[in-house]
């Protein structure tokens, strides 16, 4: 009986003590600790944009520098889900890039295409806001008109 009785009061004491401890911590946060929320997107602070929030290596939308692209199609092959479509056509002597489309609605931002690019033509931008009304807008056509491919020869000699 005494054991039971002792446990009865011990339970009450434990309950009060642990509850008080927990409430002390929440009180500390209530009174003292400041909020860490970032008020995205409209109150980021002066002159800050959404793209400043992310780090240097952030993997956002893909970006193409057509002047560097040598049309080697490695990124297209590396892509696990085939969201890049490149067409290279020969017009006369020159090779032209006629299409460079990236389907950002399918892209899973794995970075394999950026990794294999020998010239650094395809890179990640910091843009991450992809909300739009029509999913077709996410299929980004990087080239408006055919662009002649960069010559890889200079690079090859360096190597």
């Amino acid at each position: 009986m005494t054991n039971e009785g002792v446990r009865y009061f011990k339970n009450i004491r434990e309950a009060i003590l642990t509850t008080a401890k927990g409430m002390k911590i929440t009180l500390k946060y209530w009174v003292k600790e400041p909020a860490i929320t970032i008020e995205y997107p409209d109150r980021l602070g002066k002159g800050r944009t959404a793209e400043d929030l992310v780090s240097e290596r952030y993997r956002g939308f893909l970006k193409l520098d057509p002047s560097k692209c040598i049309g080697c199609l490695q990124c297209m092959r590396a892509c696990p889900i085939d969201c890049i479509l490149i067409k290279v056509e020969k017009i006369g002597e020159e090779r032209y890039l006629t299409r460079f489309d990236v389907d950002q609605s399918k892209c899973m931002y794995c970075g394999l295409c950026v990794e294999v690019c020998p010239t650094g033509a395809i890179t990640f931008s910091k843009r991450f806001e992809g909300a739009c009304y029509d999913i077709g807008e996410l299929c980004i056509k990087h080239l408006q008109e055919p662009v002649s491919v960069a010559r890889p020869k200079a690079k090859k000699k360096e190597e």
Partner: peptide, 10 residues
């Protein structure tokens, strides 16, 4: 508001 304060939110 109180829950936000307790949880470091706004």
């Amino acid at each position: 508001k109180v829950s936000a304060d307790i949880q470091n939110r706004i």
